[in-house]
Design a protein around this nucleic acid. Structure first.
Length: 558
RNA sequence: GCGCCCGUAGCUCAGCUGGAUAGAGUACUUGGCUACGAACCAAGGGGUCGGGCGUUCGAAUCGCUCCGGGCGCACCA
């Protein structure tokens, strides 16, 4: 008997065959296999008969009857029945389900990986904060969601590149330079002369102090030393950017997020890529001069108004290097790019895509993809927290990591649908109790580790356990969870919804805790003991795999 | 005013490309450690899925509309 590890696709194939025989005319109909919510409705259900009722002008139940008669035999299928309006419910044999234990133990860390990506390249750009201050909670959400998404895509068979884009040029950096310079001169933000757009956080003073003390900072393998000259704006700019990039790098390291590539906006200028993009846009005929500025006719590509490319002062708006940057991504061979960013930047989507279309470079209309996360509100003692000492006007990612730890921060920031606003409750994330889902999941893993540690056998023996002994309701539920895991990864990857992993793990942990309370593992009967241990060993493996996708530790003790 | 996102139990949220009786956690009420870790488990109450109309055999899910909340509408990023 061959081991079936993906029942959904297996059944889908069986029904497709039956369909070709029963109704060749509509054999193109997509076969959907779903998991019913109620156990009495079987393990899998197919609604094909109901879909075909109209085109075939027959009753769903008659069609279901015919489909069942034509269904090829399979070792994995125990029973097929018609229910309700014409659902076809399929029951999987327990033997086939029990096979998953061996499957998990053999595949190990690779269990759950699927191949929908087929090794294709995908670039995920996330965080991409301006080097003008420490990372804030919003960047944290971007980091958690983006990193988890990358892990999920990798597990789904994609060849992933993580990229961070630094906007180290432009007006924001001018403001940063000015702010640091003023601090060097001893001017503080409460002084009346402090500019409206200036940065007010305490960290600006740190940068100024470090620059004046001629310290050396290291960022991206480059060493930058403060010149100590209050009047050299260029030196201050250079130093401030390096200083803050290092600071952000340290924030990311503390959050255990790593990038493959860092791209700099300034490099797009020095490499001539911005100029080249402008020339190409002009050549494509979608630009015009008006009021002393150069405009791009983005309205021709779905934007609600045209955009300025070159300002009257001769500088380019951020939009031009953005287009140049994305053209560069395309030329690097990324036919798929996903930009993860805060929803407050959503207006750039239309603009960047319009700019790329205007280039006539053969880039598809909907390229690149976007995942936008909504805003984060931080709550403490039931009240919203809006400021931090260091940054002044916002809560930093570092504040959260220091207060609740890396694991809990990552979990909470990744465990929500990106589309919904997030309330980060510091008290909840900190609580080492049953109301904290992170500990709930980690505790399940630690419990399994503790049981296995007390068992004096060889792990290898678990591979030969008689899994046919696993047939209690608790065991059946866990087997089904293990079977579902690859499907969860597939859905999370196609929907770009990493939060599904977090919910899955909570469900898996819940089923395990129930099992734990209802049964003993280290029993006298050797066969029973091995069977149960092999199951919980497989559960622990899947927990490790899933937690790794979230970037959360799976501790053996806590 | 225009665009994007959201509205599901008191609170925080799931609900996969429409499916059968809408689910968790938390809070509240009860019960379970001389048993592998009680950071756990079991049981109970709690809902016009924001309102309305439509499409469909079938809608929390799709479409339209209204109400409410967030974000964005720069020659800032």
């Amino acid at each position: 008997m061959s081991v079936v590890l993906n029942f959904k696709s297996h059944l889908s194939e069986l029904f497709a065959q039956a369909l070709r025989e029963v109704a060749p005319d509509v054999a193109q109909t997509e076969v959907l296999i779903e998991r019913p919510k109620i156990a009495a409705h079987g393990d899998y259900a197919c609604n094909l008969a109901m879909q075909l009722a109209k085109p075939l002008r027959k009753s769903p139940r008659d069609i279901a009857q015919a489909l069942i008669a034509a269904l090829p035999a399979s070792d994995a299928v125990a029973k097929v029945e018609i229910a309700g309006a014409g659902f076809i419910n399929v029951f999987i044999t327990t033997a086939a389900k029990q096979g998953v234990v061996c499957g998990v133990l053999q595949a190990g860390a690779g269990y759950g990986h699927v191949h929908i990506g087929a090794g294709r390249k995908v670039q995920v750009e996330f965080v991409s904060a301006n080097p003008t201050g420490p990372l804030h909670v919003g960047h944290g959400r971007g980091a958690a969601v983006g990193d988890c998404l990358c892990n999920v895509l990798h597990a789904a068979g994609w060849n992933v590149t993580r990229e961070f884009y630094y906007n180290d040029a432009g007006v924001q950096i001018d403001n940063l330079t000015l702010s640091v310079q003023l601090r060097c001169k001893g001017v503080t933000p409460d002084d009346p002369s402090w500019p409206e757009a200036g940065y007010r956080g305490d960290y600006i003073a740190d940068v100024a102090r470090s620059y004046m003390a001629k310290e050396t900072v290291e960022a991206d393998d480059q060493h930058t030393t403060g010149k100590g000259d209050v009047n050299d704006a260029e030196a201050i700019r250079h130093f401030a950017v390096a200083y803050l990039r290092r600071e952000q790098d340290l924030d990311l390291r503390a959050f255990q997020v790593e990038f493959d590539v860092f791209s700099l906006e300034s490099a797009l200028y020095s490499d001539g890529k911005v100029e080249e993009t402008v020339k190409q846009l002009i050549a494509s005929g979608h630009t015009y001069e008006q009021d002393g500025a150069l405009w791009l006719r983005t309205t021709a590509f779905g934007d609600d108004k045209d955009r300025v490319m070159r300002k009257t002062d001769g500088g380019y708006t951020y939009f031009v290097p953005d287009v140049a940057y994305h053209l560069d991504k395309w030329r690097r061979g990324f036919t798929r790019v996903i930009n993860e960013q805060g929803a407050d930047h959503h207006s750039t989507i239309t603009r960047v895509r319009a700019g790329l279309q205007a280039l006539d470079a053969g880039i598809p209309r909907g390229w690149p993809d976007y995942v936008l996360h909504q805003m984060v509100t931080v709550l403490k003692n039931g009240e919203e927290v809006k400021i931090s000492k260091r940054a002044g006007s916002y809560v930093t990612l570092r504040d959260l990591i220091d207060e609740v730890g890396c694991d809990a921060t990552r979990y909470f920031l990744a465990a929500r649908h990106p589309d919904s606003q997030l309330v980060f409750d510091i008290d909840l994330a900190k609580s080492k109790s049953n109301d904290n889902p992170v500990y709930y999941i980690q505790y399940a893993h630690a419990r399994i580790s503790a049981v296995l540690a007390q068992w004096d056998g060889e792990r290898q023996a678990l591979l030969n356990a008689d899994v046919s002994l696993l047939n209690s309701e608790y065991e059946t539920a866990l087997l089904q969870q293990l079977i579902d895991y690859p499907q969860v990864i597939e859905t999370a990857a196609t929907e770009l919804a990493p939060h599904l992993i977090a919910f899955y793990l909570k469900d898996l942990a819940a089923d395990f805790h129930s099992y734990y309370n209802a049964s003993r593992f280290l029993v006298d009967d050797e066969a029973t003991k091995l069977a149960r241990l092999s199951l919980i060993c497989a559960v622990a493996q899947v927990m490790r795999n899933g937690l790794a996708l979230l970037g959360v530790n799976a501790p053996d003790k806590m």
